[in-house]
Design a protein around this nucleic acid. Sequence first.
DNA 1: CAAGGAAATAATTTCGAAAACTGCGCCCCT
DNA 2: AGGGGCGCAGTTTTCGAAATTATTTCCTTG
Lengths: 227, 227
Amino acid sequence: MPSATATNGRETLASIAYQRLLDDIVGGRLQPGTKLRLQFLTERYEVGNSPLREALNRLSAIGMVQREENRGFRVSPASADELSELIRTRCWLEETALRESIRRGDAAWEEGVLVAYHRLSKRNRYSDEQYVRFDGTWEDLHRAYHLSLLSACNSSILLGFCTQLHEQTLRYRNLSSMQDYRDRHELDEHRTIRDAALDRDADAAAELLRAHYRVTGEIVLASGNLS
Amino acid sequence: MPSATATNGRETLASIAYQRLLDDIVGGRLQPGTKLRLQFLTERYEVGNSPLREALNRLSAIGMVQREENRGFRVSPASADELSELIRTRCWLEETALRESIRRGDAAWEEGVLVAYHRLSKRNRYSDEQYVRFDGTWEDLHRAYHLSLLSACNSSILLGFCTQLHEQTLRYRNLSSMQDYRDRHELDEHRTIRDAALDRDADAAAELLRAHYRVTGEIVLASGNLS
DNA sequence: CAAGGAAATAATTTCGAAAACTGCGCCCCT
DNA sequence: AGGGGCGCAGTTTTCGAAATTATTTCCTTG
């Protein structure tokens, strides 16, 4: 998330609503295009209308909900076209960040990648039930691993964009049936990317990373129920 | 702006406040780090506190204001470090978009670039007084010209990120004294970029575009009053 | 029977005030 | 003199209701 938010002291209701809404949208529990009526949301989240509107406004700025003047909010629609645009853009941005990271990364970066991979490898993806944003879930470790690869690119702005794209594609993944994921050897892919990156082989790492995303995209497109 | 906002019917107060706040922050009339007290803002913009909070929340999501839980909002601080990060990131993203645009651009794209350049060339930068976001200002034509170069990249997401970065660097430009701009031949730079792009010389166009942004950055850094 | 338009209904947006929180100064105690 | 808690003033956050805007319904008219 690119949120310019110093999470100080006690959380506000608006932030709680934001997190829960984001969670439900990314988790696919709020389907694309769903009208988000305030009354429905106040009942669902037990929060007043002002904090909810603040949350919705923040979500609209990162593309998770659409806002129409005087007509309220709805979950951003999902389409095959948007998914391929997302993946295309993600490949461009992450390739840039990855190459830069490989060029600049120091010992601490290498260790970070190693640790993130290790943690991910010890976690079984399918032991997590429904998607929930929470420390230690497979998705959380997965996110952390991918971010660690890019983390030495020296641009928190670019990292923010990449995180945003990660979140959007994650929504598409959670929208699809996920049946076809089981025969995929994701951990192998993650390992080869790790090795290429730590070997400072930027061309190989970039190609592997791009392929990793393209395959994901194709699986989601194939198994998905998108317009 | 990446705002997922269909601007339908009548504008809402929140959107008006958003535009005016963005305008004042980018225009430098609200200095970096300024505390944005609600009482102050309601007097300044003659809008109630709810629409203002919505506007501030949207601005926080695009990095123009910082939000601290239970401590309100302030204009995002500006620093030399952040400026160079901005420019670095902008060079990466726009190079990607430009190369892709040059590769894919059709006749309509070429004409769009030509027209945008033409309009920009007819406008004298220094006839515009204070920065105000408005159709036909130099800044508006400048934004449109740069966007036209990238417009055929086939990723509205990437274009949104580029627009966001444009807006941020524009703030830094407006923060600096702008004295040192007068001896610069900006129009020449814009013309050579246009020519390289229309000649489909991606390497040359990318290098010229990067140089264009780097020079701007150096001028702002030199004349600027940043921490 | 279709089309248009006005009233009724439902939703969103905004306001004003109450509640909750932060920061600071003051006082008391050791 | 120093440190820790208490309470007040100022600010942010939240609520509940009023105002505005969109949508549906139903009646009228061509």
